[in-house]
């Protein structure tokens, strides 16, 4: 117990000594007077500050310009996109609505149109084959007549 107390006191004394050296070191770490004088009276120091300020102002202005141009584009583009989207939705709905509201006559006309449209479809391979065979038959008939 006595040893522990002695050790604690010794330890505390040593810590106090180390703290004292630490303080001395921190104070000693400062730059010397000549370096300080040289640093704050360096030539063109103010000119360098002005240049740094101007550079930052220019960079900020560029960022601002870019933001403004992006904003201008968005300001025009977004309403336009909304109008287009709205028009598309409107067209879709009106198309569906008119298809659903057809009268019987209109439905018949549409059916005719479908039939008519089917006539314009390209020939199927069966139709092509039958056309060729029919052509051969016609040729054969012609030769027989000549004979």
């Amino acid at each position: 117990m006595k040893n522990l107390l002695f050790w604690k006191i010794k330890n505390r004394k040593q810590e106090a000594q180390l703290d004292h050296i630490g303080r001395e070191l921190v104070r000693a770490a400062s730059a010397n007077r000549e370096d300080l004088e040289a640093a704050h009276s360096a030539p063109f120091l103010y000119a360098r500050i002005r240049a740094a300020v101007a550079k930052k102002q220019k960079a900020d202005a560029e960022v601002r310009d870019f933001s403004f141009s992006m904003f201008a584009v968005m300001r025009h583009a977004v309403p336009m996109m909304i109008v287009i989207a709205f028009a598309s939705v409107l067209l879709l709905f009106t198309g569906a609505f008119t298809a659903g509201m057809n009268t019987p006559d209109e439905t018949a006309t549409n059916f005719d149109r479908v039939v008519l449209d089917e006539d314009n479809l390209p020939l199927s391979s069966d139709e092509v084959l039958s056309t060729i065979i029919a052509g051969h038959h016609n040729d054969d008939d012609g030769e027989g007549d000549q004979r």
Binding site: A31, D35, L36, A39, A42
Partner: peptide, 22 residues
């Protein structure tokens, strides 16, 4: 001068102090 003095507490090299002032 005051800023140099403050910077000088942390840095000892002249160039570093100038940099901090700027």
């Amino acid at each position: 001068r005051f800023v140099a003095h403050t910077a000088g507490r942390f840095f000892r090299r002249r160039e570093q102090i100038e940099e901090i002032i700027q």
